[in-house]
Design a protein around this nucleic acid. Structure first.
Lengths: 199, 199
DNA sequence: TTACTCGGTGACTGCGTGCTCAGTTAATGG
DNA sequence: CCATTAACTGAGCACGCAGTCACCGAGTAA
């Protein structure tokens, strides 16, 4: 690879990494191509030599970022004994990368069909693991016999709600961090078969 | 009321009804003031004689709907209905105005601070009624002693989730209509103290 | 050294937006 | 009948945006 090709690749990588950071922080919809160019230290026009349109940038970035993040959950899921454990890990992961998950929750309805489908597919995989462990808990007589799909929608719906309206719950810091314990304990309380209610 | 006042009111109503229709179809963010004016058959400038800014339009529209809902819920609360009753009533009303609520769920994070605050305030009032009846149910020994705030976030979060991603759940028709029964029965099952789990 | 290639530049264009304001028209009231 | 008022008009403004293109200059190959 000669000097020119090397430089070109370097520029492209710089664009991707800067765009990624900006998308996570400000969201895709409110990041301008000029901002990306400025952050990458290149001219506005250069951006369009590497990517035909702004849309093609997010296609490349959003999915791969979430893929990497969610892949980190995989090994944990594999030897997760129970639902409680996986919930904790999942929420820790979201808290850790809260900016991008918040952006995703807010903006997903406005993404193109292709990207939205990809993102929802990733979610569905994780949800599937939750489902399995939930079913296991029911079979083991720990959890109540409820409609798992709907019960999980209560859970994921609440997370989605906190993330998409994050700005009203916290000024700085993490929403999930703030409500994590309540979410976990309340969800657990609701789905667990009580020994005795009066105590 | 003289001819002038009558005409003015008529124009105002025309603006509101056309704006509402467009907000439902295209969303508030993607409806332009020019479109509204064109649909209402008035000049672009006329719109700003009746409303100081675009945001005040959606505020009035959402206010009207939310007030209707609050009014419809009032009798249920008045004659000491239970949570189950108010949930049913609430979901029926949401289903009735689903298009506008779906738009609101999707777009709220992007509204200006003031508008969002006002809309959330209306939501909070309705949520307050739920809280009261939930507490009553706990006191009566019908519901389990759980964190009411968080439990309600599971409920409203799920509704929010269905509404904001409506497009992936149904092509035409109502999401709430589709999932209403499941939502109600599962939420009830979760919060109610079970007589005996094995049956 | 020279002719050519090609990544990079940034002023510019075209478009869409919310909102304004000088001017028009018609109802009002003395 | 006419001066006043108030609803209405629509061209135009200021702004922000994604995307373009004529030009530049360093790298390349002969």
């Amino acid at each position: 690879m000669n000097k020119r090709q090397k430089q070109k690749q370097k520029t492209r990588e710089k664009i991707v990494s800067c765009a990624k950071e900006l998308f996570i922080q400000k969201g895709f919809l409110h990041t301008t191509t000029s901002e990306i160019a400025a952050a990458a230290g290149i001219a506005h026009g250069t951006l369009f030599l590497h990517f035909p349109a702004k849309e093609s940038l997010i296609l490349e970035i959003m999915d791969t970022v979430l893929e990497q993040i969610q892949a980190a959950l995989q090994p944990v899921i594999a030897h997760a004994g129970n639902l409680d454990e996986i919930i904790r890990c999942y929420l820790d992961l979201i808290e850790q990368h809260e900016a991008i998950f918040s952006t995703k929750a807010r903006e997903m309805p406005f993404y193109g069909d292709e990207l939205r489908r990809k993102l929802l597919f990733r979610d569905a995989i994780i949800r599937g693991h939750f489902h399995t462990l939930f079913q296991q808990g029911i079979d083991d007589g720990i959890y109540r016999q409820v409609d798992i799909q709907t019960a999980l929608t209560f859970f994921f719906g609440a997370i989605h709600y906190y993330l998409s309206l994050k700005q009203i719950f916290v000024v700085d810091g993490s929403v999930i961090g703030k409500f994590k314990d309540q979410i976990i304990s309340t969800f657990n309380a609701l789905i667990t078969i009580p020994k005795t209610e009066e105590s």
